[in-house]
């Protein structure tokens, strides 16, 4: 039968595609786990210093990932702290207060921003730090603050879109409930619309955290270094996990360093994947969240 033939071929092709993707994922995860898992120990983080001293005693860690972990954490915290208010406000404005042509233009603007490659964002951050260096103080250069600011630009579109689409997804009957009781638009927003779209917004923020934690190109241009210790101020250079992984893959000096690189890759992979998993779980729950049934 000629007809059954090409159909079977299509089906087989689809399965082959699925197999290719699955084996790609298995290769990446398998390699990271096989090479990294044996090294994920307290020693990986703190090297020769004991965990207690590093955490509470302020003892510097020279041969562990601890400073990179802390640096990444600061970066993420800073970037999200900057992106959340700006992104929320913009998303709310787009969903609730802008109409017609203005809204269309703004949406396109943020689509463009979402598409800007991270290395260009990093380049922008770098030029901002050059500008600060020239105009404000020669002491300023690429640093934690500049990197967090650049990462903020990178993830801002995620937060804006998540907020906007969550708010726009609020059903009409919920939207007018409070209004019909005499609430003004601001009250409606604060007491009904935002609580109702909370999960969608939260999943956007989680994705933003994940992106900040994994992005390398931005920090590569805005002040990441191989050894800096735990950063003491926002104006210091810093270490970060993804950069450490990149650094090790290009030029590792010793087998210990390579082992730390494998460990770092596994940790970063684990953190990113769990962040994305939680984000998707939160968002899926929104879909099944049939609150307003009769």
């Amino acid at each position: 039968m000629k007809r059954g033939c090409w159909e079977r071929a299509v089906r087989c092709g689809c399965y082959a595609a699925g197999f290719w993707v699955v084996s790609g994922a298995v290769a990446v995860v398998g390699f990271a786990v096989r090479q990294g898992a044996p090294h994920v120990t307290p020693k990986l983080l703190f090297g020769g210093v004991s965990a207690r001293e590093a955490l509470f005693g302020g003892a510097p860690v020279f041969d562990g990932l601890w400073p990179a972990v802390v640096g990444t954490f600061y970066l993420v915290a800073g970037a999200v702290a900057l992106a959340a208010p700006l992104g929320l406000a913009t998303g709310i404005y787009l969903a609730e207060f802008s109409r017609g042509r203005l809204k269309e233009v703004l949406t396109v603007f943020f689509d463009v921003l979402a598409g800007v490659p991270s290395v260009v964002v990093g380049l922008f951050g770098f030029s901002v730090s050059l500008l600060l260096h020239k105009m404000v103080s020669p002491r300023l250069g690429p640093c934690l603050l500049v990197a967090a600011f650049s990462l903020m630009i990178l993830v801002l579109p995620y937060v804006i879109r998540a907020t906007q689409s969550a708010l726009e997804g609020v059903p009409q009957e919920v939207r007018i409930t409070a209004l019909s009781l005499g609430a003004d638009p601001v009250q409606n927003l604060a007491w009904v619309l935002i609580p109702h779209s909370f999960r969608g917004i939260a999943s956007g923020l989680l994705l933003a955290v994940g992106r900040c934690a994994e992005d390398t190109a931005v920090i590569l241009l805005t002040g990441v270094v191989v050894t800096a210790g735990v950063p003491r101020s926002l104006l210091d250079p810093f270490e970060a996990l993804p950069f450490y992984i990149y650094y090790v893959s290009t030029q590792y000096a010793s087998p210990e360093e390579l082992e730390r690189g494998f460990g770092a890759a596994l940790i970063l992979l684990g953190v990113s994947v769990s962040l994305f998993a939680v984000a998707y779980a939160v968002r899926r729950a929104v879909g099944h969240w049939a609150l307003y049934r009769a």
């Binding site: 919920v174 209004l179 005499g182 003004d184 609150l291 009769a294």
Partner: peptide, 19 residues
């Protein structure tokens, strides 16, 4: 309009309690 809607209140076809 907020005063109007308080004094001319409305109940909908499908009950819509707030969460």
């Amino acid at each position: 309009v907020t005063e109007l809607r308080r004094r001319v209140a409305m109940v909908f076809q499908v009950p819509n309690p707030l969460p």
